[in-house]
Nucleic acid binder design. Structure first.
Length: 288
DNA sequence: TATATCTCCTGCGGGC
DNA sequence: TGCCCGCAGGAGATAT
């Protein structure tokens, strides 16, 4: 499940293998993969052909390729199961191949996506808060690995909200790049239960939580990301190793590495949350 | 306006 | 063996 570290691994791969190349031909094999490109697949393919990729950028879980001479970007979201693969054209099509971009150098850039939650769309570039981003990404907050990420601003935003901390962590307009896995890991490190109201947490505790999110994602990036199955791979089809370092997510009934209590699993926002019952006690009163 | 819930999608595993 | 159902979850749409 691609979150920030996994998307950054893919971005680096695209920077190494795709930047500097020109797109010769584009084939959209599943319309849902371009549903966010409202003019449709024919428009997208036509506007990509002949364009050169000049950079690969990322904010949170969104990544984009900047194109010249049109000065637009292909915005890519991997969703739950999206993969950007650099392949030799002789490699047989993947079962869930959704988009193929053939480069003039003779290699394929393939978008493979089993669950079709991800997709490609073209977007104009705009300047927001001193940074150039696609207009479709303008509402996304800076992520903890962004050099211009300001934790004090995020703490202030969190303390002004009337919601639970895990819900706020997953809100990409507050802080981006955090998904279910790294939210649970950051909350475990900061010893905070995900149901705690954001406005009842002190500034230093929230700061500690953001530091934990940054640290866990940095460590995951160093190990090539987290993989539970073949759904997340880098551009060469290889998996990461951080799943072996997870302290909370997916660790149900295993002893907490800090206190030994069995990690519990709870339903939250229609998904699973993992936490230590002793290190991360539930709040006495939960809204709702 | 802010927050909460629903929906999309596919493959796997468990239960019957 | 085969069918059915629940689960996984990011983010936009819809509801409250």
């Amino acid at each position: 499940m691609p979150e920030l570290p996994e998307v950054e691994v893919v971005r680096r791969g695209l920077e190494a293998h795709v930047v500097g190349h020109t797109i010769a031909d584009v084939e959209v094999l599943h319309p849902r993969a371009v549903r966010r490109h409202l003019p449709g697949s024919i428009d997208l393919a036509g506007r990509l052909e002949g364009q050169s990729v000049v950079s690969a950028e990322r904010r949170g879980k969104y990544l984009w390729l900047v194109l010249e001479p049109s000065s637009v970007a292909i915005v890519v979201h991997l969703g739950m199961s999206g993969q950007m693969l650099v392949q030799d054209p002789t490699v047989p099509d993947e079962k869930h191949l959704r988009i193929r971009a053939r480069l003039e150098s003779g290699i394929d850039l393939r978008f493979v996506d089993q669950r079709t939650f991800g997709g490609w769309a073209l977007a104009d570039l705009v300047t927001v808060d001193g940074t150039v981003v696609p207009d479709s990404v303008a509402h996304i907050a800076r992520d903890p690995l962004d050099p211009r990420f300001d934790p004090d601003v995020v703490v202030k935003t969190l303390r002004s909200k009337q919601t639970e901390i895990k819900r706020a962590l997953l809100d990409q307009t507050v802080v981006s790049g955090v998904g279910n896995i790294y939210a649970d890991e950051a909350l475990w490190r900061a010893e905070i239960h995900g149901n705690r109201p954001t406005d009842k947490l002190s500034g230093p505790r929230l700061r500690r939580l953001l530091d934990a999110a940054r640290d866990v994602m940095t460590e995951a990036l160093d190990q090539g990301g987290t993989s539970f199955d073949a759904l997340y791979v880098n551009v060469n089809g290889q998996s990461g190793y951080f799943d072996r370092s997870l302290d909370a997510y997916g660790q149900e009934d295993l002893p907490c590495r800090r206190c030994g209590s069995p990690i519990r699993r709870e339903k939250f926002m229609n998904r699973s949350s993992y936490s230590c019952p002793r290190c991360q006690p539930r709040p006495r009163l939960v809204r709702g």
